[in-house]
Amino acid sequence: MRHIIPKTYREALEHLKSGSLHILAGGTDLMVQNRAWSETPVAFKKDTLYVYNLEELRYIEREGDMLHVGALASYDMLERHPDTPSALKRCIALLASPGLRRVATLAGNIGNASPAADGVLVLYALDARVVLDSADATREIPIEEAITGPGRTAFEDGEMIREIRIPLEDFDSERFKKVGGRKADAISKVSFLGAAAFDGDVIKDLRLALGAVNTTVVRRREIEAQYQGLTAADLKARSQEIREAYAPYVRPIDDQRSTATYRRQVALNLIEDYIHSL
């Protein structure tokens, strides 16, 4: 296996032409997935491109109502940055541990495509987009299109994430809830992000996203759209109906962390409870 440590982003893109590579940023997923016996080198199954030190990609910049998050901006950087959306900050505060947040990146979590990744859940709710570069092209796709299934992405060989674009919008209400096996440093059994913006008493924007209950994050724009234009009181009166509207999309599994029954019940409880809080 080859180990490539590019000096520049351009050089990294050139190397990517050679085929399918592991792109290692913070390493918090790849180093675990490929670990070998201790005191022996990590057993990557593909050639590996070590991009952690590409400082060019370590940035967070605001441009009008858009936040540009470079692929190597860590969760820790995002947590400190004044322009990071509050919903994402709420999520980061409960994500993994200080040592992991220091190196782990949103881009890495997108690449790993775990349906339980909390940061990715927030990106779904905030309509984030992913900018992919290859040596000779660039494209930008919505986060829903970037992730196609557990561990699967729409990225082509030769492409890597340059940045994530997060539209900056104000919400009047936001709630992030992570349900893990313990209060900190846990992988989610279920995660939830709810956000709403009002025009007077009327809901003009409602967003609901659920993590770890299907093969990818669940966000249903058509259901959200149905309830826009209602008052909070109307919405609350229809909380049971909203709960049921999500039920078909909540299709969790039994695993070592929880049960499908629990995940389903809690996911739907979280939606209903959030609607009641509006």
Partner: peptide
């Protein structure tokens, strides 16, 4: 209330400290 370990057909489902949950300082 926190620590869950189960087996399925003799195979333990929680095989590491990520899946076998012990209390952190926050818990």
């Amino acid at each position: 209330y926190l620590e869950v370990m189960e087996h399925e057909g003799g195979a333990l489902k929680q095989k590491n400290l990520t899946d076998y949950i012990i209390p952190t300082a926050v818990d």
